[in-house]
Design a binder for these strands. Structure first.
Lengths: 125, 125
DNA sequence: TCAATAATGATAATTGTTACTGTTATTATA
DNA sequence: TATAATAACAGTAACAATTATCATTATTGA
C-alpha cells in the first residue's frame, strides 16, 4: 500500500533517519524514537520503513544480519565494519557507466547496482 | 570452530555447491542433498556452510531475504533478479584497484568489496 | 583397538520481520 | 465545524531464517 495520509509517527521516523548519518536498523530506530514517543510500536517502524523504501523516499540495505535503512535515497556506496557491524557511507564517486558496461556480461536487464566495501572502521581499529 | 575432521556430509555439501552454478540458499542445498542422504539435518548444512565460509573455502552472500552460498571463493560479482530472487554470476572483470582508490573515502581499512547488480533475469523477462 | 573429540541429527530457542485485529487519527466533503 | 471513510496505529501473534543445545555417532591419532 502506498503512502497517502500523514502521521506523526511517519514524520518522526523520516526525521530521525535523515538527522542521523549512521544507517540504523529498524530496531535501532525504534529504540531511539521510543524515548520521544513511548507508545510507538515496532511494527509501525517496520511498516513505514518498507513503505518509504518502496516509494524510493529512503533506501533499504540488506547486507549482513538485519536490514539497515538510509535516509539518503541517492545511490552511493557503503562500508560494512566486520567488528561493530555498522554501515558507513563511502563518498567514492558513483560509477555511472558500470551498469551499461556490465550489460554484455548479464543475462537480463540491469536496473541498479550496489557496491559494499568490507573492512574495519577507524573506531574499531 | 575450525574444520578439522572429515565427514561425508561436509564433502557432499561442498560437492553439491561446486557442481551447481546457481547460488543456493542453505535450505535449497539441504533439499537437494536430502534425496541422496535422507537423514541429513538442516542444522548440519547451516553449520558446515558457516564453517566453510569462515574458512574462505566458499562464499556467503547476503543480499535479500535468505543468505546464498557460492562454491566459487574467488571474488566475482552477482546480479539479483527481483522477480525470481535468484542470484546469477556476472563475469564483469573484477575492479582490482577499487579498494585502493576507495581508501581515501573511508574511515578505516578495507579488506574486500562486493558489487551486486539488481535487475530482471532473462527467464523472467 | 581404543580413547578423545569433532561432527551429527533432532529439536528447542532466538532473531528479524510480517500479518492480523480492533482502535485511533487524518482527510475530504458536506 | 461536524461527519463519514479509511489510512495508519498499537499490540500481539505468526512466520521464516538461523543458531544453540545435547545426547549419540563417526573419525582420527596413538
Amino acid at each position: 500500500m502506498a503512502v497517502t495520509k500523514h502521521s506523526k509517527q511517519r514524520d518522526a521516523i523520516i526525521d530521525e533517519l535523515c538527522q542521523r548519518h549512521d544507517h540504523p536498523t529498524a530496531e535501532e530506530l525504534y529504540l531511539a524514537l521510543k524515548m520521544k514517543m513511548p507508545n510507538l510500536s515496532l511494527g509501525t517502524v517496520y511498516r513505514n520503513l518498507n513503505m518509504l523504501s518502496d516509494d524510493g523516499t529512503i533506501q533499504k540495505i540488506s547486507v549482513g544480519g538485519a536490514d539497515h535503512f538510509d535516509g539518503n535515497a541517492k545511490n552511493h556506496y557503503h562500508m560494512l565494519c566486520t567488528e561493530c557491524k555498522r554501515l558507513l557511507d563511502v563518498a567514492y564517486p558513483v560509477l555511472e557507466d558500470i551498469e551499461n558496461k556490465a550489460h554484455s556480461f548479464v543475462d537480463g536487464r540491469i536496473t541498479s547496482h550496489t557496491i559494499t566495501f568490507i573492512g574495519v572502521c577507524n573506531s574499531c581499529l
